[in-house]
Write a protein that binds this DNA or RNA. Structure first.
Lengths: 195, 195
DNA sequence: GATGTATATATCAATCTGATATATGCATCC
DNA sequence: GGATGCATATATCAGATTGATATATACATC
């Protein structure tokens, strides 16, 4: 979803500055399905201004820099609702972690093991944070997306834990027999289904 | 991962044209963790040429346009291996589908139901395709990533199937009681954990 | 004083996105 | 027969995004 639509979605819930919009988009559950930087937020807000989808009001603050608070217009609400009616674009997923694992043979055993352990630690931390989220005032949509994200992280953690040794061992074996047709012993957690 | 590194990864397995590189990146298991367009492949190949990480040879073809076949250099291999040693960047996931579900209250009941059904159909098709993949010659890394992706799709399908009715019903109830503090009956598949 | 953090707005070079253009063939349809 | 569509190929473009940086008002720490 383009940055304009994301800003409209946040502003639909209440007026906010560019900085506040970014902060909200970094929280759960937005964080599960979107990511956006200042470099695209401010140009997007300016485009929304030009299109009459938002208005802006400068505010002075004590002990803090001035801020510009943006509010959605009726046109902006219409625009947001219109974009929800389009068939959603394909999900987009990019993972340098999986790219590196795909090339496991080019990595040393220890480096590969470290990658796993770092990612497993991160996943556990994310899952803990998500379990601590207070969803008491959340909409059905928010709860659903939260649950979707949590399920993903839990399953990813489970997959990494149950297949870590397999990849380390297979990669080691492959490295030692790169030209052989050796068929390794099949274990119960062999990825790729039947052999 | 930037497009140059992706191109080097493909060329490491054998020389290829820009078009062939894109085709390979669209296949499993690359498709699970990366996506890239011609608009970035050709400039990336040109930059790799300038850097001496690839060489290029033009080839005429019968009944087809000429093609330019790129091959990785020793410098290019070093570059690829070097990039595998950096800590991987954070995974990036964007989903318009989840964005729309997050705003379920702004959609009509039928529209919401259609979204679910379309996605469920797509997921089943993807899972079928992945089950039909021949992994007999695949590397451990490729098998691992394939398994990771398949697990994700299967779990996403499961989550959608088990929570579809919940979101439709909750959203409907919320729409009818938007200012109430009504507490709905808790079912065994309520997302968001404890209430 | 330098460094770091938080709140704020803004910008920039490099890269990517989605679409489009062009070219060589072949197949199908009205 | 011409238009349309597909596949194989290379290339480009306007708009958008990315990651970093700059600037400003405060405050805290070393």
């Amino acid at each position: 979803m383009d940055t304009r639509t994301l800003c409209l979605a946040i502003l639909q819930k209440g007026a906010a500055s560019g900085y506040e919009i970014k902060k909200k988009l970094e929280e759960m559950p937005y964080r599960i399905f979107q990511e956006v930087g200042f470099g695209s937020i401010y140009p997007a807000l300016n485009r929304l201004l030009e299109a009459g989808h938002v208005t802006v009001q400068a505010q002075a603050q004590r002990k803090r820099p001035d801020k510009k608070v943006y509010a959605i217009t009726a046109n902006g609400r219409q625009e947001l609702e219109g974009s929800l009616l389009h068939p959603p674009a394909q999900d987009r997923f990019r993972s340098d972690f999986l790219f590196v694992l795909f090339h496991s043979e080019l990595l040393a055993h220890e480096e590969l093991a470290d990658l796993f352990d770092t990612r497993i630690t991160e996943l556990k931390s994310t899952i803990d944070q998500m379990h601590a989220c207070d969803l008491s005032g959340a909409s059905p949509g928010a709860r659903f997306v939260h649950g979707y994200g949590l399920t993903y992280y839990e399953n990813a953690l489970d997959y990494l834990c149950t297949h870590r040794e397999w990849l380390l061992d297979e990669t080691e074996a492959r490295r030692q027999t790169t030209s052989a047709t050796w068929c390794p012993e099949v274990s119960s957690t062999v990825p790729g289904g039947d052999r």
